[in-house]
C-alpha cells in the first residue's frame, strides 16, 4: 500500500513541481495543468500500445506536453492575471473534450486498457516497489532540473516577471518568450508525469484529466507554498496521503469518501489561517489588492 502511495506522490510531486514553475515562480495562474498531464498520458499510452518502447513513449509524452504548453503560452502571451487563468481553463476543457470525443484514437469514455508496463535493460518493471523507485527517480530528476532552473539567471527572470513584468521588459528582458519557456518547461514535466501515470495504472480515461484534477494540482502547489520546489513536493505528500490513504483504512466507502473531503477541507482552511503563504512559500497568494500595491513604490 505504502508503495502505491509513494508512487502516486512521485507522479503528483512532478506535476506540482512543474506547475510551481509557472504559478509559483512566474506568477501565471494556471487552471489547465491536467491537460498537459493528459496529453502526456495519452501520447505515451498510444505509442506504447502501437509497439514503441515505453520510455520513448514517456519522452514523446513530455514533448507533446511541451508542445501543448507552447500553444497555450503563445496564444495567451499577452493575457494577464485572470485572463491567462481563463485561457488555461479553456485549454484544459478543450483537451478533455478531445480525449472524450476522438473515439477513433482514444476510445473516448471507454478509456485505454492494457497499457504496458515498462522494462529497463530487458528487465520488466512489474512490482509496485520497482515502479515506486522509478517514480522517485523521475521526481528527483524533475526536482534537480527545477532547482537548477530557478537558481539560474533565468529563474531570476521568472521571479522578476512575477513581480512586475513591465519593469522586466524595460530592463531588456523578453517577457513574452520567457513566459512561454516557463510554461513549456512545466508542461514537459507534466507530460512525462502523464506517461509515468499511464504505464503505472495501465488504464487511462478522460476522467483522470478534468478541471478537478487541475485544481488538485494547483492546490498542491499553493498548499506547499508558491515559489518553493520542496514545498510543492511536501504538498503532494500530505494531500495525496489524505486523498488516497484513507482508502486503505478498510472503512466503508460511504464513510471514507466523506471523511476524506472533511479532512481535506479542514487542512486547507487551517493552512490558510495559520500560514497564508503555504507551508514553505516565498510569496503570498496574490490578491488583486496585493498585486496593485506591488506596482507602487513604498512611500517614505
Amino acid at each position: 500500500m505504502i508503495y502505491h502511495l509513494v508512487t502516486l506522490i512521485g507522479i503528483y510531486g512532478m506535476l506540482a513541481v512543474g506547475l510551481n514553475l509557472v504559478v509559483g515562480y512566474t506568477g501565471l495562474f494556471s487552471l489547465g495543468h491536467a491537460a498537459f498531464f493528459g496529453l502526456g498520458a495519452y501520447t505515451s499510452a498510444l505509442l506504447s500500445l502501437a509497439g514503441a518502447p515505453v520510455f520513448t513513449g514517456m519522452l514523446a509524452g513530455g514533448i507533446i506536453g511541451a508542445l501543448g504548453g507552447w500553444l497555450v503560452g503563445y496564444s495567451t502571451v499577452n493575457l494577464r492575471g485572470d485572463y491567462f487563468c481563463l485561457g488555461t481553463l479553456a485549454f484544459g476543457e478543450i483537451t478533455r473534450a478531445v480525449f472524450t470525443n476522438w473515439i477513433g484514437l482514444t476510445r473516448g469514455p471507454m478509456g485505454l486498457p492494457g497499457i504496458p508496463r515498462p522494462s529497463l535493460f530487458g528487465v520488466p518493471i512489474k512490482s509496485v516497489e520497482q515502479y515506486m523507485v522509478l517514480a522517485l527517480i523521475f521526481l528527483a530528476l524533475s526536482l534537480a532540473f527545477a532547482e537548477r532552473l530557478v537558481k539560474s539567471p533565468f529563474g531570476r527572470m521568472l521571479r522578476s516577471i512575477r513581480e512586475d513584468d513591465v519593469a522586466a521588459a524595460s530592463l531588456g528582458k523578453n517577457v513574452g518568450r520567457t513566459k512561454i519557456v516557463a510554461v513549456m518547461a512545466g508542461s514537459f514535466m507534466a507530460g512525462v508525469a502523464g506517461g509515468l501515470y499511464a504505464h503505472y495504472i495501465t488504464y487511462i480515461d478522460p476522467m483522470g484529466f478534468t478541471l478537478n484534477q487541475s485544481i488538485f494540482i494547483l492546490v498542491l502547489v499553493v498548499f506547499g507554498g508558491l515559489g518553493n520546489n520542496y514545498g510543492s513536493i511536501m504538498g503532494a505528500v500530505i494531500l495525496v496521503v489524505v486523498r488516497e490513504g484513507l482508502r486503505f483504512l478498510g472503512l466503508p466507502s460511504s464513510v471514507s469518501a466523506a471523511l476524506q473531503q472533511a479532512i481535506y477541507s479542514v487542512l486547507l482552511i487551517g493552512l490558510m489561517l495559520v500560514r497564508p503563504r503555504g507551508l514553505l512559500g516565498e510569496v503570498k497568494y496574490m490578491t488583486r489588492g496585493d498585486s496593485s500595491r506591488s506596482l507602487e513604490g513604498g512611500g517614505e
Binding site: 531570476r156 521571479r159 522578476s160 513581480e163 512586475d164 513591465v166 519593469a167 524595460s170 516565498e282 510569496v283 506591488s294 506596482l295 507602487e296 513604490g297
Partner: peptide
C-alpha cells in the same frame, strides 16, 4: 527607463 513609482522587484 526608470519608471514612475520605481517598480523595483520587491521580493528579490
Amino acid at each position: 527607463h526608470v519608471p514612475e513609482g520605481r517598480r523595483i522587484f520587491k521580493s528579490l
